[in-house]
Lab assay of single mutants.
Amino acid sequence: TRVETATETAWISLVTALHLVLGLSAVLGLLLLRWQFPAHYRRLRHALW
């Protein structure tokens, strides 16, 4: 049971790290898009909202 718990903890930390990385890359990508294509971003936002 001790090994299982350790594996579970490792998986949880791995998944958390993955989610953090994905979230950060998504935010960075959005910022980059907004910085590179302001007109396109505004049009996209206008279409979405």
Rank of each mutant, 00 (worst) to 15 (best):
W35H: 14
W49F: 03
L30P: 02
L20Q: 03
Y41L: 10
H40S: 10
G29Q: 01
W11T: 03
L18G: 00
W35T: 15
S25K: 03
A6K: 11
R2L: 12
V3E: 00
T9A: 14
S13N: 09
V27Q: 02
L33T: 05
T7V: 14
R2K: 11
R42P: 02
R34T: 09
S25Q: 10
P38H: 12
A6F: 07
H46T: 10
R2S: 13
S13M: 13
V3G: 00
A10T: 10
Y41S: 08
T16L: 11
E8M: 00
A10L: 04
P38R: 14
L31Y: 14
L18R: 01
T1N: 08
H40E: 09
I12F: 07
W49G: 05
H40M: 10
L14R: 01
T5Y: 05
V21F: 13
A39M: 13
A47T: 09
L32R: 05
A47I: 08
H40G: 14
L32C: 05
P38I: 09
L22Y: 02
S25T: 14
L31S: 12
W35I: 15
T1P: 07
L28I: 04
R2E: 12
E8H: 05
W49M: 04
T1V: 12
R2W: 12
E4W: 14
G23M: 15
A39W: 09
V3W: 00
R43P: 06
H40F: 13
V21H: 00
T9P: 15
T1M: 12
P38Q: 14
V21E: 04
I12W: 06
L22M: 12
H46L: 09
V21S: 09
L32P: 07
R45L: 07
E8R: 02
V15I: 11
H46M: 07
A26T: 13
L30I: 11
W49T: 05
L22I: 13
Q36L: 11
G29R: 04
F37Y: 15
L20M: 12
H40K: 12
P38V: 08
W49S: 04
A26S: 11
H46P: 08
R2F: 13
T1D: 08
L22F: 05
G29S: 14
T16C: 12
Q36C: 08
G23L: 15
S25F: 06
G23D: 03
Y41M: 10
W49I: 06
L48C: 14
V27P: 01
T16H: 05
R43G: 07
S13L: 11
E8C: 06
L22K: 05
H19R: 02
V3H: 00
L18T: 06
H40L: 08
L18H: 02
L24R: 00
E4V: 11
L20N: 03
L33R: 02
L14P: 06
L33D: 03
T7P: 09
V21C: 14
Y41A: 15
L28W: 07
V21Y: 04
F37D: 07
V15D: 05
L22T: 10
